[in-house]
């Protein structure tokens, strides 16, 4: 079950967060969050609903703006400087709970739009990249369909391919399987597992324990906007240190 331990001690830092605070109006969604993710590391973020997991992960590519503290991604600090934001977004792919595929574009167009418009790749080259990625996620035969004609699992695999088409160094996943019927979860997790072993940096909000135990290097547990606990998957699931983590685990594991 457990993977061979990667040695990440010498790896460069991919994501660095220092004392990050984020408010929605007067409500504080993130409280003094600090963490570090190394290149090639696979981090799973878990925590109760409303604990700020989405908020944090969305701060990393600036879909949300933090108010104080520092977030540095791939050596570039997130500020209001649009060039920094653009640079970071080029290197960070994101997969959403609700897929967010573009319904007016075909599957292949969904994947090629960013390489063509952002990287200015030729159409033929972009389509080559797109078909290779569809091959990788196992649905090359769906290339010319529209997202609305695909099952949820297939749509999420397209969304992963779409994010990968920009050849990001970091992939963010926000509950990628939560909107899926049980029989489709596995096909998406399989793609994510393959990705996790490819050496890409991954930060993934998910409650899929099997996935976490198999491929995560570290679990980060959020509660009420704070990082409460960080541990290896085995440690976290077998010996949670904090009471809140224990309570949370007993709830999701149903005992």
């Amino acid at each position: 079950m457990t993977q061979p331990l990667k040695d990440l001690s010498a790896a460069p830092v991919a994501i660095q967060a220092d004392h990050v605070n984020k408010y929605y109006g007067s409500f504080q969604a993130l409280k003094d969050v600090s963490m570090q993710v190394k290149q090639g590391e696979v981090v799973v973020v878990i925590g109760p609903s409303g604990s700020g997991k989405s908020t944090f992960i969305r701060c990393i590519n600036r879909l949300e703006e933090h108010q104080t503290g520092r977030i540095v991604v791939g050596g570039v600090e997130l500020t209001n400087d649009v060039r920094n934001i653009d640079a970071i977004r080029k290197d960070v792919g994101m997969v959403f709970q609700s897929f967010n595929l573009f319904p007016h574009l075909t599957v292949l167009q969904n994947i090629t739009i960013a390489p063509m418009r952002v990287k200015k790749l030729e159409k033929a080259a972009a389509e080559k990249v797109g078909m290779d990625l569809l091959e990788r996620v196992g649905i090359p035969e769906q290339a010319s369909k529209f997202p609305g004609q695909l099952s949820g699992g297939q749509q999420q695999r397209v969304a992963i391919a779409r994010a990968l088409a920009m050849q990001p160094k970091i992939m963010l996943f926000d509950e990628p399987t939560s909107a899926l019927d049980p029989e489709m979860i596995k096909e998406v997790l399989d793609v994510m597992k393959e990705l996790a072993t490819s050496g890409i940096t991954m930060m993934c909000v998910t409650h899929e324990m099997g996935f976490a135990r198999e491929v995560a290097d570290r679990i980060i547990f959020f509660d009420k906007g704070q990082v409460i606990e960080e541990a290896t998957p085995d440690d976290f699931y077998n010996n949670p240190k904090t009471d809140r983590a224990k309570l949370f685990l007993s709830q999701i594991l149903g005992h």
């Binding site: 739009i113 960013a114 779409r162």
Partner: peptide
């Protein structure tokens, strides 16, 4: 989510 996905991909 449509706009977020587009921006996350790096589209201006």
């Amino acid at each position: 989510g449509q706009i977020e996905a587009a921006r996350a991909l790096g589209l201006t």
